[in-house]
């Protein structure tokens, strides 16, 4: 079928084979499903180490979290993609980064022994290793909308935001960025950085839709308005509200 009116969005999934142990692929599944319901074709292209990205083509980037060995490899490889990614971000490309992926968008991750894992400096933030791991069910509130967000955090890195950025959410229950200032994640341009696994988007469809809308608007396309049955999502959210940290 050659439908000239078909809307296509291109998603680049960064390092799915290396950053893959915290269920973050559920985010891509959710974007794909909610696009499909709206008649949008979301093309997912996995990007492996040393593979080039076509910055002209990509509408949405996704990067998840992983283990430290894998993150070292990713950090090195990202340096070769750094310029392309930064200019894409400046051009308002949508970017969802979770946990390790979120940290690598910043300046660096400083380990307990002082060694620094380089980020791509796309966002004004940095992370230092903390001595207490933050693990548990998080409940927070998106600052832009007041929408409740749910997820599971599992990190010892403490992230501090610079003045040119805004936090993504206000923590109601949990550690968030650093366990100190009561904020979670980052918002800058069309970047969404967060520590929340769960997976994050399946239980937070509002954010999934927002990501799709931003990606469409950047291309000058209006988001198709449809009714989506979110009854299972709402049940899971209701449950998440009652979980302990």
């Amino acid at each position: 079928m050659d439908n000239k009116n078909e809307i296509i969005l291109e998603l680049a999934y960064l390092y799915p084979d290396l950053l893959n142990i915290y269920g973050d692929r559920g985010n891509v599944l959710t974007l794909s499903y909610r696009c499909q319901l709206r008649g949008i074709n979301l093309n997912v292209t996995p990007i492996k180490i040393t593979e080039k990205i076509d910055p002209e083509k990509v509408d949405v980037y996704f990067m998840g979290g992983g283990q430290d060995q894998q993150q070292i490899i990713v950090s090195e490889d990202l340096q070769s993609k750094k310029n392309d990614l930064i200019s894409a971000i400046q051009n308002n490309v949508v970017f969802l980064a979770v946990c390790g992926g979120y940290q690598l968008l910043g300046k660096y991750y400083k380990a307990a022994d002082g060694t620094e894992l380089k980020g791509i400096e796309a966002v004004d933030l940095y992370t230092v290793a903390g001595d207490k791991r933050m693990i548990g069910n998080v409940m927070c509130e998106e600052i832009e909308s007041g929408e409740e967000l749910f997820g599971f955090e599992n990190h010892s890195g403490k992230t501090y935001l610079g003045s040119s950025t805004k936090p993504f959410a206000k923590v109601i229950r949990g550690g968030g960025n650093n366990g100190e200032d009561g904020f979670e994640g980052v918002r800058y341009k069309n970047i969404f950085g967060t520590y929340l696994h769960g997976s994050f988007l399946p239980k937070n469809p509002y954010i999934a839709d927002k990501i799709i809308r931003l990606a469409l608007e950047r291309k000058g396309i209006k988001m198709p308005e449809i009714n989506i049955d979110d009854s299972l999502e709402n049940l899971a959210r209701k449950k998440a509200e009652k979980l302990r940290y």
Binding site: N20, G23, G26, L29, F152, G198, L243
Partner: peptide
């Protein structure tokens, strides 16, 4: 379940 012995994070269901 999500007790400690199960793993408190159910993210693994997505993997």
């Amino acid at each position: 379940n999500d007790d400690f012995a199960d793993g408190r994070d159910v993210s693994w269901l997505w993997d």
